[in-house]
Amino acid sequence: MDIIEEKSNDIAVFKLNGSLDSNTSPAFEEKVVAIIEGGTSKIIVDFSGLDYISSAGLRVLNLASVKLKPSNGNLVLCCLQDYVREVFEIAGFDQFLPIVATMEDATAKFN
């Protein structure tokens, strides 16, 4: 899996390509935790290149969401493929994580 990390203004954008599974989740966890602990409170995760996520990947997103709470930060997910979105729905994660269709919609959440 590739993790591309960008910063535009005060928003951190992670673009994930490939699979977010038990093998690749620790690397993503390390990056996302580091950026939150570095003071970033606005995060977008672009799932357009992600074709698989398991419970290990969802755990990292849950952890990020919990870590963002003290700073009133937010985690927004965009561009999910249908099957990936279905996994979020099965897990109930769509109830507490904002999931939007496009990167523009994700950026708009922070304006």
């Binding site: 398991s54 419970s55 897990a91 109930g92 109830q95 507490f96």
Partner: peptide, 16 residues
């Protein structure tokens, strides 16, 4: 009605 926190504890993997 289980929310995500409960699922994390009860085992998200088996739920999937």
């Amino acid at each position: 009605s289980a929310d995500a926190d409960e699922l994390m504890e009860e085992g998200l993997g088996i739920h999937f």
